[in-house]
Design a protein around this nucleic acid. Sequence first.
DNA 1: GCGACGCTAACTGTTGACAATCGTCCTGTC
DNA 2: GACAGGACGATTGTCAACAGTTAGCGTCGC
Lengths: 235, 235
Amino acid sequence: MATIEHKQLWQAVADQLRDEILDGRLAAGARLVETELADRFGVSRGPIRDALTELARTGLAVDLPRRGTFVSSLTEADLNEVYVIRRAIEEVAVRLAISHATAQELTELRVALEAVEDAYRGPDLAAAWEADMEFHRSYCRLSGNGRLLAVFEQLASQTVLLMRTAVATRASLAWIPPVEVHRHIADAIGARDAQRATDAVAAHYRYTEERLSAADRGRETGPAPSAPIRRSLAG
Amino acid sequence: MATIEHKQLWQAVADQLRDEILDGRLAAGARLVETELADRFGVSRGPIRDALTELARTGLAVDLPRRGTFVSSLTEADLNEVYVIRRAIEEVAVRLAISHATAQELTELRVALEAVEDAYRGPDLAAAWEADMEFHRSYCRLSGNGRLLAVFEQLASQTVLLMRTAVATRASLAWIPPVEVHRHIADAIGARDAQRATDAVAAHYRYTEERLSAADRGRETGPAPSAPIRRSLAG
DNA sequence: GCGACGCTAACTGTTGACAATCGTCCTGTC
DNA sequence: GACAGGACGATTGTCAACAGTTAGCGTCGC
């Protein structure tokens, strides 16, 4: 059923820019000038504009009217916002997935889980995060609720960006890969135990918060307080 | 603090189209042709395109590449999707609002509640729905989570559209205004009782589902069941 | 020396035109 | 009579240019 995607220009541009933002080549706060990008990609400003609105839609960029588009500078507060919503919708997602996913569909969850565990064993953190997101995406997809999946997608790309900045200031995060929490979620869904699955999701996010707090305590002794990231454009 | 809004053209167009979709002048499935709209609004196709992508983003229209944009035809399944997510995020929203909204901010909730009750007493269903959405929007705003509010906004406009189509096929809905459920939510938040507030939101959505099921049963046997408590859809 | 004003450069918002693609109608054939 | 194929029309995707606005910088007045 793989329909050939006649990719629009703006999609190709958006994909490219998304990658560059997520792997840090485009730093937070960087300005995305339409004319520059148009030159660089060899297309006119139209598709560039479409790509930038797409990035703004997914939260990777912010669009200030008449002023330009900038790579998002996400902060601690943003991280909390994202996790609060992800937890809420994923708790629902696992329940929905349990109630109407076929046994065959549930196997793809285990595949995704193993990919996560493998990836976190490796050295490439960015790849691990992608696998991580793909695992969560799996059961959001299996929920059968397209809008839920869409909300998740938005938050997923922001999550990766947030992890980047979090690790940048708190290197210790990289040493505590979140593996068991994912296995618990997969197990509970596999057993079609709704209550346990919900709890497992909740536990996942409690664990994540705990990791962040622990890393924070470690950071308090060192430099870099969190304040000055905001409004890098005014300075 | 009222900063002057230099409204972009596409925003004005999007607002206008949104109104027309929500009050039914633009029927579900209607085609939105860029050149036509450009003529009608006296602007070029650029801002029209932006407006259409905005409508697509909020779910009021769907964009088929190379084919055009159409007013969304939302179905029963969409209604379920929307309500599932709204329930999930609103349960969180009330808890957040309780934990960090000032007493003064909570008063705006009561104002919104009274607006809802007044509106449902009147004959204008569309206005009642808007007031209804504004009530829910209040505590989503008070949650302090901007992304949560953004997700709500998307779903809110779809909700209004869904109610339109639901009433079109099940007139009996108009006779059962959902008033008490809102008061329970407001009361629980006002008392800063997180558990009761969460339960009240859950009850709200159970009640809504019940109303829809009841209307469905009424529809299966024949048109309009009796026992009217309150009157009148559009008079 | 410090703050306010005005100028300049750069960029976005908007426009109209061109080109590629899709749906539709008509025709011809099986 | 139904279906495949081709031409036409309509509509979107893309492009290049114009106009208005914003930020930065220098200059003037105090």
